[in-house]
């Protein structure tokens, strides 16, 4: 049997300070291949902290994180980078697109650190843009397209490398409700095609669209539906 794509075992996170602040308390979580999951909770409940740890951008204070079965505790920083480059895709609330480069080049940048040659990056970026329905806007600058389209570009960038898991932090946070709904619908479609996706949101209406919902409150998982 293949291991879960992502597995958190008694993960805690304490931010240093006086007094130290424990923002995650013994979180247990497993995401299987092909799942579409929402992590929902109010502001300050520790969702972004959880996403950073799931995405190996940060290490847990204690507990175990396994990505595609690999325990990240044993990895050096450069190995974590390689893990992110090949197996994890990120989508952020602020999109983080470069205004000075075309939509295509922005998406292609997602494959840069996986060592894909430039021509192949461009080709796969074009395919990813097709998948999110932006195949006709590849040469536009991000400033010339709408917020919803920008987020689709960011999703294409996360998907271009066909990662084992895509982590999205408030992907609809900067969008109006109809654009947000379109993004959610798109994520469902991509999930149908086989992508494993975790979405973090504070919005219960958004979360309601997802087949699996994990509720988090004050750093603990309080329910799952």
């Amino acid at each position: 049997m293949t291991p879960p794509v992502l597995e958190l075992d008694h993960v805690t996170k304490t931010y240093p300070g006086d007094p130290p602040l424990e923002v995650l308390h013994a979180v247990n979580l497993a995401i299987e291949e092909g799942e579409l999951v929402a992590v929902v909770g109010p502001s300050g409940s520790g969702k972004s902290t959880l996403l950073s740890i799931m995405g190996t951008l940060d290490r847990p204070t204690s507990g175990t994180v396994r990505v595609t079965g690999i325990d990240i505790a044993g990895l050096e920083d450069r190995q974590l980078s390689a893990l992110r480059a090949t197996r994890i895709g990120f989508v952020f609330q602020q999109f983080f697109l470069s205004e000075h480069e075309s939509v295509l080049d922005n998406v292609a940048e997602g494959l840069l650190y996986a060592g894909v040659p430039r021509w192949e990056r461009q080709q796969r970026a074009a395919e990813a843009l097709d998948r999110v329905g932006l195949g006709h806007r590849t040469q536009h600058r991000p400033t010339k397209i709408s917020g919803g389209e920008r987020q689709r570009v960011a999703i294409a960038r996360a998907l271009a490398g066909r990662p084992a898991i895509v982590l999205a932090d408030e992907p609809t946070g900067n969008l109006d409700s109809s654009s947000g709904a379109a993004i959610v619908a798109m994520l469902e479609e991509l999930n149908d095609d086989g992508a494993t996706i975790v979405v973090i949101t504070h919005d219960h209406d958004v979360a309601a669209c997802f087949p699996r919902r994990i509720e988090i409150l004050d750093g603990s998982i309080v329910g799952e539906r």
């Binding site: 980078s81 992110r84 650190y113």
Partner: peptide
């Protein structure tokens, strides 16, 4: 931050 998330190492 984005480049690190996309897999850039510290060295890169």
């Amino acid at each position: 931050g984005l480049r690190r998330a996309l897999g850039a190492t510290k060295g890169q």
